[in-house]
Design a protein around this nucleic acid. Structure first.
Lengths: 399, 399
DNA sequence: CGGTTTTGTAAAGCATCCGACCAAATTGGT
DNA sequence: ACCAATTTGGTCGGATGCTTTACAAAACCG
């Protein structure tokens, strides 16, 4: 049963076209780089999000605590909290055990059970994965379907989402989708070679079919959001997602970067080094993907009769990743690079060699301040949880 | 003063929660990624900047025009404009020639003569350059001093700024400084090997000495601001500044990127390619700076007896720049790369070869949508004008 | 048991923007 | 000549949002 709760009127959250998406970037020459007017009600919305954000990251606390954390007065916090309780996003959790003089505090917290988020991960090579998540990123239910033929793709995705919405026993805050391909800021898939999509408005199709807010983004961009919100990644982080291809998601100053043509992160077919390399499916030689993708890595590992050679193959791939990322690290000063993919391939020598190569090829700010390289701890669910973060961020202003 | 807010007791009520709730607790030293409260007066400030920004980019217009451009009502615009006139930032420019029915409009515009900006460029290898600029970036007066010995650096800079402030025949909006080195967001120079500075608060020193607002940033970061504001660069642009060293400034989605340790743009000592290269002063081999800096380029050109070899040397350098930037272009999807430096070195074959190499080593979104590479048209004043943009942006919210 | 501290709410005040209305100035039709 | 239409710029009251001040409730402490 489609719920209309998530699209109620008075919420700030409802504005489908947020003012930050001004990038109607097609005009030749220059786009108007003007911001938008700000009204008192926008300030209200910002402060609403600020309360939610504080509760999200710091857990249950009293209104007085919220006042101290946010800088807003207790009066305003009371008002905001009352509004959020009425909207079902916040709930009173009982009285805190008195720990000193004064009236005992009433704890308030996000109503984690009050809403659910649907996340979809279309990046698998064999299956589409979907899940029902709580507001704190916990997975409540999960479904998988085999990737269908090209002409049934959309119907399959819609049905997967519809089944999950039906399975959610709470109002659905929104549906987040992480998909391969280049996706613009309105959820239109500009190009997705695997699916044969070009200029397809997946976000609009899902919204029309489901009647709930939908947000669609590239899978690696979703993944880096999960790593930021749930994985403790710093404000400047690059996530490299290794699967059938190689892609990346980038966060700078805590903001996701989309690129001028929404193609940020497309590093799979960047040529690495000046000494040739494996043949790539794209026709070029020495693409990062030819060195690092799971198919290319496994085929080279299988071809090596001697298991002792495996170490060398993984180190070579790690070195190539380091060579490719060194200019990015130098130009952006990211402090952490997170790898997502099969841990048995990426987790060991490969990651070690990557960080060694990076330090050799960049001028580290100081000895122990070099860039870190590590595997994600989000495992296989990283895109699902990233899709949930997209909804949290888009609907509640929380990340 | 009471302050027991630090640690509350554990809450007694603890609904079963997924293990991921506290996305924050670990990672020592990590900054809270919470925003700040927003009050109505902040909205007012934003709208003030919006009016200034509109006038800055579109020139004189009537209050009614401003209302249509910004979406604010004529009432609010009249109020904002009155305030800006009282502050001396806006002036009435007379009545517009009637072009239709209705009462003739009174044009208002930025009062370009009402304030001046002081810009300093400390990036020259021989001289410090300073200038008095109008609000629209025009240079009114200029001074140069030889770079002094290390122990007189600060005094020299202060005196240069003081002389320019005295020379400005209008209130000084602020002083902007572009300097080599790594500069944090409060104008503290973390490292500047050329000057022997480490952790030196140049911004504070100048502010104390001059009593006007001061903003200090890296020279290449200042330069890219000039290119964005005065050079028509798009929202996602990388500027490469070639001089004694090689540095870069980066703008993504119209926002300057500083990096996690304020070291974004430090690409001079990134190793390029996997086939060696010239020896760099830093001790490594094949740094971008060893290929591309003005001293290294000129010495290689002078060493070539045959002028016909010059073309090859420049093409090699351009190719190396392309090799270094290809991963950056892939990861960020910048749409334009701007070169700043001696045009006789960078402007011809070098830039051509750079764009060719970039296109060969990245997967262009489509045929004619590849990245552009061009020389700046801001010439030698790019850092001065960028420093002025820093002041415009910091003091008026205009860029 | 009164004094102190803390929490949460209520009332009044200030800032900001908007809608409705109005006066002024110009064009254009009759 | 004159009046209607149009556009500009302003005034006045109303709505929203945050703050300061004040207050009741509920705990602790001596």
């Amino acid at each position: 049963m489609p719920n209309t709760e998530a699209r109620r009127g008075p919420s700030i959250i409802d504005a489908p076209q947020s003012p930050t998406t001004n990038a109607r970037a097609f005009a030749p020459g220059r786009t108007l780089r003007q911001g938008a007017k700000v009204l008192p009600e926008h300030a209200r919305g910002h402060n609403r999000s600020l309360v939610l954000q504080t509760l999200f990251h710091q857990g249950a606390m009293s209104r007085a605590d919220l006042s101290r954390e946010t800088g807003l007065t207790r009066v305003t916090i009371s008002d905001l909290v009352a509004e959020l309780i009425a909207d079902g996003f916040v709930a009173e959790m009982g009285v805190r055990e008195a720990s000193g003089p004064g009236k005992p505090a009433i704890l308030v917290d996000l109503d984690h059970a009050g809403h659910r988020i649907i996340g979809l991960d279309l990046s698998g090579s064999d299956t589409f994965i979907g899940a029902v998540l709580t507001l704190d990123g916990g997975i409540v239910a999960r479904r998988e379907v085999a990737v269908p033929a090209a002409d049934a793709l959309v119907d399959t995705v819609v049905e997967l989402a519809r089944a999950l919405v039906a399975e959610s026993h709470a109002p659905v805050l929104g549906v987040g989708v992480g998909t391969p391909g280049v996706v613009d800021d309105r959820g239109v898939i500009l190009t997705a070679p695997n699916f044969g999509w070009a200029g397809f408005d997946l976000e609009g199709a899902l919204r029309n079919a489901l009647g709930v807010p939908v947000l669609v983004a590239n899978d690696a961009n979703a993944a880096v959001l999960a790593e930021y919100t749930f994985g403790g990644a710093p404000d400047d982080v690059l996530l490299v997602k290794v699967g059938r291809g190689v892609g990346s998601g980038l966060l700078l100053a805590g903001q996701p970067m989309r690129g001028s043509r929404f193609a940020a992160g497309e590093i799979g077919h960047v040529t690495v080094g000046t000494d040739g390399g494996p043949q790539c499916a794209c026709g070029k030689v020495g693409c990062l993907e030819a060195w690092l993708s799971v198919p290319s890595l496994t085929s080279r590992l299988n071809a090596a009769a001697d298991p002792a050679a495996h170490e060398g193959i993984l180190r070579d791939a790690g070195e190539r990743l380091g060579i490719a990322l060194a200019p990015v690290v130098g130009a952006l000063d990211v402090s952490e690079i997170v790898l997502s993919g099969p841990p048995e391939l990426l987790g060991g020598s490969l990651a070690e060699q990557t960080v060694e190569t990076l330090r050799a090829r960049t001028l580290a700010p100081s000895v122990d301040e070099g860039v870190r390289v590590r595997m994600t701890e989000q495992g296989q669910d990283i895109v699902l949880r990233g899709a949930a973060v997209m909804v949290l961020s888009g609907q509640l202003g929380v990340s």
